[in-house]
Design a binder for these strands. Structure first.
Lengths: 256, 256
DNA sequence: GCCTAGGTCCCGTTG
DNA sequence: CAACGGGGCCTAGGC
């Protein structure tokens, strides 16, 4: 990857550079003193401040303030980014078609602009998703309960999908909702919706919430609703999965 | 703001530069060919790819791939970022205490590094939040229903808070849940939880979902649950609020 | 620290 | 296209 940086001596120079690199669909990063105006699903405005602006080859635009993970303003995907000089300011207009949104960036000063064309995308893998946990249970249902058999994964029901649908050793239908993080009330409500979808059709089923932990109020709501839960040990599960997994890399040397 | 950029001729030079600027709590942005390993609440790994890495003065670390709004890897807040040269790679270890997470970035090549110390933070205002909508209803409850009076805002209930709590013209207690976007089932379930919190204590209340729109299944669930809804016009509300608001800036010249 | 709820949530998947 | 649910969600506000 070739990265090229300029320290523009004027906003006109910055504009020309941006126009050319947007045309080439380069990856653009610049430091600027600017303010942003946004209107769409919500609306925002700001006073001038030092910002880092990223424009990606796919048109995504991200404006970062000096603090925190979240950008101050953004446009996840743009249909067009227009650059112009207006009243002594460098103005970028980033439009989005659907939902219809506009983000206007007014730069009073551009400190530096870097750009590069990126050939190396690389691959990415995420582990320990709800998906992975679900698949692990499918291949070993006894981790939930002895004698449990899984009949269907992602079974469509009235609204949405049941994570796991099975039958216990006594022949009862079991509906399972899986959470990869501590489950709150919302998870219980979700499970309850599924169980009720059966109940209204006169079918009584067991509902089991599968999670590494439950909040207190979630537990209370679960009890009141006649539902059950099963705590799973994510660390153990991760190590089991890790052992089976094609070893691509390892963090062992880094783990503290 | 002063922005300084180097094109390091070696990883050692990049390391020295990073160490110094991290020390100074500068704002650091660099382009690199690298891969990231993450382990914490989840786990991820990747092959090498071209990335833009941002390290903010507060220690937030963000790694962007060439696509989309979301970073590939990140650390919202770090307790420490260590930089070292290991086996011909520039390695950054970003630790987070709680939750305990580690992000390791292995750079095989650093194309350029920019840094700057930012004095101008600027201010930021967000409009049309649920908060704003709620306040607008408080100052004019008739937009929901004639004769409605608001008794309490954010009234604490069994678990959580009721957005608006009031009384209708006939003396019935009214519980309102506000959504700034189209409401789905989840919003209905939330409202239902609040209404049920009264019901279990033998108090019958009206539940009204206030939103710009409802999904079909949300409407169905709402009907079945004996709840009500009120559609609000966000565009109209925004213009009303905008008129009252202290005019800081305007997008009028930009709106298409 | 835990927990609840909002978000311009984003994002993938599916009908 | 709309809608539903996951996410390393993040972040703010209460306790």
């Amino acid at each position: 990857m070739e990265v090229y940086t300029i320290v523009p001596s004027s906003l006109a120079e910055a504009r020309d550079f941006l126009v050319r690199e947007l045309e080439r669909r380069s990856w653009i990063v610049f430091f600027a003193l600017c303010r942003a105006l946004y209107e769409g699903r919500g609306a925002s405005e700001s006073t001038v401040g030092d910002r880092v602006v990223i424009i990606k080859p796919d048109g995504s635009l991200i404006i970062h303030s000096p603090k925190g993970f979240k950008p101050l303003n953004w446009q996840p995907e743009t249909s067009s980014i227009a650059v112009s000089l207006e009243g002594g300011l460098l103005v970028l207009r980033a439009l989005r078609r659907s939902p219809r949104e506009i983000l206007v960036l007014e730069c009073s000063s551009v400190y530096s602009i870097s750009c590069g064309v990126s050939p190396e995308e690389g691959q990415f893998w995420m582990y320990m998703s709800e998906h992975e946990i679900r698949d692990a249970i499918v291949s070993n249902p006894s981790m939930i309960e002895d004698g449990l058999t899984i009949i269907e994964v992602e079974r469509p029901v009235e609204p949405g999908f049941i994570d796991l649908y099975g039958r216990d050793s006594k022949g009862n239908i079991v509906v399972m909702e899986i959470k990869r993080v501590k489950a709150g009330e919302e998870a219980v409500r979700q499970l309850l919706t599924y169980v009720n979808a059966f109940k209204v059709r006169g079918v009584v089923v067991r509902g089991i919430l599968v999670a590494p932990a439950l909040t207190e109020s979630a537990l209370k709501l679960l009890m009141v609703s006649g539902l059950e839960y099963k705590i799973i040990d994510l660390k153990k599960l991760y190590q089991q999965l890790q052992a089976k997994r094609v070893k691509r890399t390892t963090l062992k040397d880094y783990i503290l």
